[in-house]
């Protein structure tokens, strides 16, 4: 999918949406952002990695993933849904407590101190399917025109 609004600063690539300043992110805490008709949950991890996943909790249907607690399970960075406490892998979006359920992952990049999100890995959810119907994981980089940009961001310059 692509963003419906155009960023205020012209971009070479219209599929990337500028959401906020990197400095607005709080370490180990999420914040939601509007990306067209969808919402993303952004997380700044120790070391500076930024992850973005769908803000909609597939188990409750509420837009609350950004309010979850981050952490690790083994070596994987995670976020826990604040609603019913399922744990998701921030890098892949896979729910570690129910691997059939996956959050869409937004590619993240930094430019001039701004955080930009690319098109997410899975299609937008059907808004009417209600809670309890998670998105099946769509493996492979097919949805992402820039497969190399998935996952944690390289901080780049200018933060």
């Amino acid at each position: 999918m692509t963003a419906t609004s155009s960023p205020t600063v012209p971009r070479a690539d219209a599929s990337w949406v500028t959401v906020c300043r990197f400095a607005a992110l709080a370490p180990e805490r999420g914040i939601a952002a509007i990306v067209g008709t969808r919402q993303a949950a952004l997380f700044l991890l120790p070391g500076g990695d930024v992850h973005a996943v769908d803000n909609r909790d597939p188990f409750s249907g509420a837009n609350v993933m950004a309010r979850g607690i981050t952490g690790t399970r083994g070596d994987r960075p995670t976020v826990t849904s604040p609603m019913y406490k399922q744990v998701f892998d921030l890098a892949s979006g896979v729910c570690l407590d129910d691997p059939a359920t996956t959050l869409a992952v937004f590619p993240v990049r930094l430019r001039d101190g701004w955080v930009e999100l690319g098109p997410p890995t899975v299609p937008p959810p059907d808004r009417d399917d209600g809670p309890g119907h998670g998105h099946r994981r769509d493996d492979g980089p097919g949805d992402d025109p820039r497969g190399e940009s998935r996952g944690p961001v390289d901080r780049g310059g200018g933060t």
Partner: peptide, 27 residues
């Protein structure tokens, strides 16, 4: 409820949002 949402019986809490970032980046 899910059904009420689908049937359009419900009302949203606010008008549709803007997602323009740069100008209201002040939190």
């Amino acid at each position: 409820t899910v059904d009420e949402r689908r049937d359009g019986r419900a009302s949203t809490a606010s008008p549709p949002p803007s997602s323009d970032a740069r100008d209201d980046a002040v939190l």
